[in-house]
């Protein structure tokens, strides 16, 4: 680095062409991502007549009132609240149960430990579609259909295999002398877990929180089948019902989409490192 700073040779022409091509490509793909967003925003802030007359350009009048109208017509406040009500318990349940089981399977002695681990691992391979049909009747028979539990329970359960897999891998990687020291100080297993291991698991837990938050916030098929009442409907199915109902009303449907996207995108921009780590947690080894 230092040598590059001190000696600045004249760049040959080829360097600048390559540099230009490099940035050209990078910007091209950035536009590929951004232009659809731009059109969503433009469409959301036009009237339908303006869309028909000038589908591409900037909104001639920036109709921010469209957002308010979509918010009210689409009952988005209720759908947002419903999404929070189901997502928070799911994330808490998945993360705490995964930490417990992941820790148990990584560090505690018990017969059949690997067997149990593989048993959970099989769950990674079972797609939701393979269990969605009887799950409906099971949830009905235990009487939770028609409550938020109809989403919380199954979404938690299908998220556990990955959570356990992930937390077990994390806890396995921690050094043993930490636990040994704590045990000598008189901690029992739970004490070791709570006082020593859990505080170290911060980044892994954060990744798991993001991963599961996104998973249940974005879930669509599960609430489509199990959360039928409009009173319980979360944001994703709510948005689907809103945009297909107002299908030909493009400005309303894009305004609704914008309302749903904006908070997630804002949170992402604020915490992008955590988001990227959380969402790629399964693919990038921690």
């Amino acid at each position: 680095m230092a040598s590059a700073m001190t000696i600045r040779p004249r760049r040959p022409m080829g360097f600048w062409i390559a540099k230009g091509a490099q940035y050209g490509m990078l910007i091209l793909f950035a536009l590929f991502v951004l232009v659809p967003f731009m059109w969503v925003i433009f469409t959301a802030l036009k009237s339908n007549l303006e869309i028909a007359q000038e589908p591409l350009g900037l909104p001639p009048n920036w109709r921010f009132e469209n957002l308010a109208q979509a918010w009210n017509q689409g009952k988005f406040s209720r759908y947002f609240i419903n999404s929070v009500i189901v997502t928070v318990p799911i994330v808490i349940l998945v993360v705490s149960l995964s930490c417990l089981a992941g820790y148990g399977l990584a560090r505690l002695k018990m017969p059949g430990r690997m067997l149990i681990f593989y048993f959970f691992l099989v769950g990674l391979m079972v797609p939701f579609t393979a269990i969605m049909i009887p799950l409906f009747y099971i949830l009905r028979d235990i009487g939770v259909l028609g409550t938020y539990w109809a989403m919380i329970l199954p979404q938690t359960a299908i998220s556990l295999p990955f959570g356990i897999f992930f937390m077990r891998a994390f806890f396995s990687g921690l050094p043993y002398d930490l636990t040994d020291a704590a045990k000598i100080d008189g901690c029992n297993d739970f004490g070791v877990f709570r006082r020593v291991m859990l505080p170290l698991a911060g980044p892994a837990v954060a990744a798991l929180v993001v991963f599961n938050f996104m998973g249940s916030w974005n879930a669509f098929l599960l609430p489509l089948i199990y959360l039928q009442s409009d009173k319980l409907r979360p944001i994703m199915t709510g948005m689907m019902f809103f945009t297909t109902r107002w299908g030909p009303d493009y400005s309303m449907s894009m305004a609704g989409t914008l309302i749903v996207m904006a908070p997630i995108m804002a949170v992402y921009l604020a915490f992008q490192r955590q988001f990227i780590q959380g969402l790629t947690a399964g693919a990038v080894r921690g």
């Binding site: 417990l100 079972v126 329970l153 359960a157």
Partner: peptide
């Protein structure tokens, strides 16, 4: 440690 997750998993998956 494992049981709560196991119960959920068995019943709903």
């Amino acid at each position: 440690f494992v049981l709560p997750a196991l119960v959920m998993y068995v019943i709903f998956v």
